[in-house]
Design a protein around this nucleic acid. Structure first.
Lengths: 225, 225
DNA sequence: ACTAAATAACTGACCGGTCAGTTACTTACA
DNA sequence: TGTAAGTAACTGACCGGTCAGTTATTTAGT
């Protein structure tokens, strides 16, 4: 690995008083990643050539290898760049909340749903799922940096809700699938099969419908006891 | 397209009185597809060579082209072979059922969950999702032959349940995501990221947990009125 | 002997990665 | 201010390898 993207340039001089002579790079890795994201998303990883990425980023193939040691490193860089904010978002919302988890879940689902409208944001997870077989190390990175942080937090949130008697006695780990699965399926249907509800993506309606069922389903069953 | 696979060979003689043993064709297309399924599943479409498929099926690359006009035709043949039974299964269960949809949903989810244990069955949908970008015509075939038949039937099932007052007033089309999404997410997490609940895939526990929440969530809200 | 089945060798295009060379900028010095 | 020296940034032709698809030939069943 050589660089991967690091925005550490300030116009003001630093301490070593030998700024040498920076040329006009620095923004380049990010530009390359932008181009790669666009092409990988549109045509898939293996059907995109490094040359195409270079052209789109406005430089030559050789220069791409100045910044990234391999084609796969492009994918890795892409994931890494998108990964931190997403994971942090989820964790920030959940934090160490205590009480009825439903407001937090509503917020989380709402955030995800609204993000799904922005292709830039969700292109990376889609890419990861699609290319995980050919590049297992990418899947693992994604897992380590996103899932292994976000899922335990969600599990805790739900478990805590169950213990506090705020929601039905469900399996916290499995219930995560019930919370996020419908969103994922919606995404897959729309992206892979172009199956959308009548009026566009309708993500707000989806979130509404889903949360209505989910929250009613999570209602504790005290009436039965 | 030349053949695509057709299992019309029975050990008992047919009408043309030719029980002799054909050199060794007839079963070949299916053997090739079996090999292709295995390799495509394990290594992805583009990273699998036709030669590898041929070797695994016990013949030469040239022979593969005797049965299939192109590499993509292998994928198409795979989809077509798996598609009819799946779609029929779903439609058979739903039929033109009237009444509370929940028993039917339970049966459907149960069938899907139990099928997910068999890699042979779910390898094809997984493949389709993964390769849909590089081979849109495959995705479309899958859509036309499976989804466009199964989804409307499910929509009808739910709509009918709403009208009959058996379940809450939900959006039938969107509720499909709430029914099947958790299963899909479970599959993706397990297959792509190797994230499984403690004790294996736990598909029955997943189905249980999911249906508990779902059915409670679908309960009509007469108490509120 | 005839023919369908099967093959192995071949071809041509493609692509990831390399590297010798060029360009454009910075600095040093007059 | 001008210019020579120095170098990071960049280029694009090229190499080695791979692979989908073709074809000339061999093999085996009748």
């Amino acid at each position: 690995m050589k660089c991967e993207s690091q925005k550490t340039s300030s116009p003001i001089a630093e301490k070593p008083r030998k700024p040498k002579f920076r040329r006009r790079a620095e923004a380049r890795p990010d530009e390359v990643l932008d181009a790669a994201l666009e092409l990988f998303t549109k045509r898939g990883f293996s059907r995109t050539t490094v040359d195409q990425v270079a052209k789109r980023a406005g430089l030559s193939k050789g220069s791409v290898y100045l910044y990234f040691p391999s084609k796969k490193a492009l994918l890795a860089g892409l994931v890494r760049r998108a990964v931190v904010p997403v994971a942090n978002m989820a964790l920030g919302v959940i934090a160490d909340y205590r009480g009825d988890p439903r407001p937090v879940i509503r917020q989380l689902v709402g955030m995800l749903a609204s993000n799904m409208n922005d292709p830039k944001v969700f292109a990376v997870p889609k890419l990861v799922i699609r290319e995980a077989v050919g590049a297992p190390e990418i899947a693992q990175m994604y897992r380590e940096e996103v899932l292994d942080r976000a899922l335990p937090a969600m599990t805790r949130l739900i478990a805590q809700g169950v213990e506090g008697g705020h929601i039905r006695k469900v399996d916290p780990e499995l219930t995560i699938r019930s919370i996020l699965g419908p969103l994922m399926m919606h995404l897959v249907m729309a992206e892979v099969f172009s199956i959308k509800p009548e009026g566009g993506l309708a993500l707000d309606r989806l979130a509404d419908n889903h949360l209505t069922i989910l929250f009613a389903g999570l209602e504790p069953e005290e009436a039965r006891l």
